[in-house]
Write a protein that binds this DNA or RNA. Structure first.
Lengths: 158, 158
DNA sequence: GTATGCTTACTCGGATACCACTTGTCCGAGTTCCATGGG
DNA sequence: CCCATGGAACTCGGACAAGTGGTATCCGAGTAAGCATAC
């Protein structure tokens, strides 16, 4: 049970795209080179963010990627959900209703089981924490040199 | 990114073992039949709980499984951690230090990156919620008929 | 009656196979910018 | 000077392969209870 690496990539790319908003769109080549990530696969993952309405992509010769909204309006939760498929961490399979234990008893199963309830509460706490932070927050928290280094790199590659 | 089904099984088994504490140890055959789960695989998962000190197993003819501690002293978090390997949901791979972005810049990387920090906070909220509930809580929340049904089944199978 | 050995029922640990998902690569199609060439 | 054409650079979407971890099964080894047997 681990979050996919793509979620981390997506968040870093969102922050970078936030800094380079005025130079948008940014090509996938530049993003992949910046983080030393496999270009093809990174592209595939960013497409998920595009479908979720978080990133916008523009085709063509000077095409590339940019934030679809302002960084203040993109929460970390949205990015994670888009990368992970939006599924719930815990999926109750109603094990208690299977087998001998579930036969014939009706009234016991109207309410969701306690295990499922606890899991949902924990998951909710997790989601709320992720939803409380935006890409703009991450940009503000980053060290001051980071943004400038990004722009310098632009000069290196053209 | 989904929690393994084994975690759900483990929690249900812990609750059941809590009810049947005075009939312990309970054989794996009985537990598997109760929930209609694959006996061999369930056994393998319960072994993880045994290694974690949550369950105790006794070999021999009348052997089986029982809670290693009282239900009040076993948190949901412990069970989940034992089943999932105790790993963290999000593992920061320090993507920012790879590639061109990480070359030559030293001072920026002393502190952990903001993304990692947000993830850790969210994960902590999740863990705290899971640690706040015990097996005893789950037993108390269950419908009243559940415990009796378990005992009746004992009579059915001997 | 007591001690010894056998059978039975259970757990433990390793080996193995299968399946789903993540990671990674490749290719054809479509879109836009730009340079080139003809009117 | 203006417009059409073609190439270059980029994204999109699908197909496919490799790696990893969860699910599931099987088997030999070890342990303890119960029973039978021998003394």
């Amino acid at each position: 049970m681990r979050m996919s690496e793509g979620a981390e990539w997506g968040l870093h790319c969102c922050v970078t795209l936030g800094w380079l908003a005025d130079e948008a769109p940014v090509s996938i080549r530049r993003l992949a080179a910046w983080f030393d990530l496999p270009q093809e696969y990174l592209k595939k993952r960013l497409q998920s963010l595009s479908r979720a309405g978080i990133l916008a992509s523009s085709p063509g010769a000077l095409g590339g990627w940019s934030l679809a909204r302002s960084p203040e309006k993109i929460t970390v939760m949205e990015v994670v959900a888009a990368m992970e498929g939006g599924l719930e961490l815990f999926h109750c399979t109603e094990v208690r209703q299977r087998g001998v234990g579930g036969q014939g008893a009706g009234a016991e199963f109207v309410r969701p089981c306690g295990i499922s309830a606890v899991m949902r509460r924990a998951e909710l706490a997790w989601r709320q924490e992720l939803a409380a932070h935006t890409i703009a927050d991450l940009m503000a928290r980053s060290p001051k040199g980071a943004e400038r280094t990004h722009r310098n790199y632009r000069r290196m590659t053209g």
